[in-house]
Design a protein around this nucleic acid. Structure first.
Length: 220
DNA sequence: GCGACAG
DNA sequence: ATCTTGTCGC
C-alpha cells in the first residue's frame, strides 16, 4: 500500500469511529498493546490486565518482518499488521484495548487506537507520551487535565496520571467517550506515569527480545 | 520557505 | 522505535 492509498483509507475509515461506549459498558479486562523492533524484525505484544486488581490474566506475542516504514501520521499501518495476530492469540477477549499512541488525536482523526478499534469492533483508547495538538499545562495533581486541541477541535486530553510528572495524552479510539477513556487511564495508572497495560506490554516485548522469555511461553 | 512530526 | 553513560531518588 502506498502512502497516498493509506491516507485515503484513513479519510474513509474515520467516519466509522463511534464516540460512545456500548450500553452498560463496564470493562473488566483491558489489553495493553505494544510493538518492539530490532533492525529488521518486530515483536508485537498483547497483555490482558484485570482492571480492578491490575493482575495480568493473559498475554500473547507475534513476531515477523517489518515491512511498512514509520511515516508520521501513518503509524497504524506499521503497527496494525503486527498487533492483530497477537490479539488473535489471546485466550481472553479484552473489553477494551489500550494503545501506545493516539486515537482521535490525529491529523485525520484516525490514529492507531481508532484503526484497531474499527478493525476489531472492540472499544479502544489511545494513551501517548507525546502530544499531537496543542494544550495548556494541566494542574500538578493526579487527575488534573486540560483539553488537547487540534485545528480548533478538542481531540483528547493532556492528563496528569501522577503528581508532578509530565502528562500523558488520552484520546478515544472507538466505541468509547473521552470521560470514560480518562477514567480508565487513571484506573490503570495508580503508580506510574503510563498505564500498567502499556508497561506490561512494553516489558514483555523487551523480555522476548532479550531472550529471557521464549515465544512459545506466550503461544507464539 | 521552515520546522515539527504518535512509535 | 532504537542506540547509550551517567545520575538522581526511593
Amino acid at each position: 500500500m502506498t502512502v497516498e492509498e493509506a491516507i485515503q483509507l484513513q479519510l474513509r475509515m474515520a467516519h466509522l469511529v463511534e464516540h460512545r461506549a456500548p450500553e452498560g459498558f463496564e470493562p473488566k479486562v483491558a489489553a495493553g498493546l505494544d510493538v518492539a523492533y530490532t533492525s529488521d524484525r518486530f515483536i508485537a505484544t498483547a497483555v490482558c490486565v484485570d482492571i480492578a486488581t491490575l493482575d495480568i490474566v493473559d498475554s500473547a506475542v507475534h513476531h515477523g518482518v517489518a515491512d511498512f516504514p514509520y511515516v508520521p501520521g501513518l503509524f497504524s499501518f506499521r503497527e496494525l499488521p503486527a498487533l492483530l495476530p497477537a490479539l488473535a492469540k489471546l485466550r481472553v477477549t479484552p473489553d477494551v484495548l489500550v494503545c501506545d499512541g493516539q486515537g482521535l488525536a490525529h491529523p485525520r482523526r484516525f490514529g492507531l487506537a481508532c484503526h484497531i478499534g474499527v478493525q476489531t469492533g472492540l472499544p479502544s483508547i489511545g494513551v501517548s507520551k507525546q502530544a499531537l495538538g496543542q494544550y495548556e499545562a494541566p494542574g500538578p495533581h493526579r487527575g488534573d487535565w486540560k483539553p488537547l486541541v487540534d485545528n480548533g477541535e478538542t481531540v483528547g486530553r493532556a492528563l496528569r496520571t501522577q503528581h508532578g510528572v509530565k502528562p500523558v495524552f488520552v484520546s478515544i479510539g472507538h466505541r468509547i467517550d473521552l470521560d470514560t477513556a480518562t477514567e480508565l487511564t487513571l484506573k490503570l495508572s495508580p503508580r506510574y506515569r503510563l498505564p500498567e497495560t502499556t508497561r506490561a506490554a512494553d516489558h514483555l516485548g523487551r523480555e522476548v527480545l532479550a531472550g529471557r522469555v521464549g515465544v512459545q511461553d506466550v503461544r507464539d
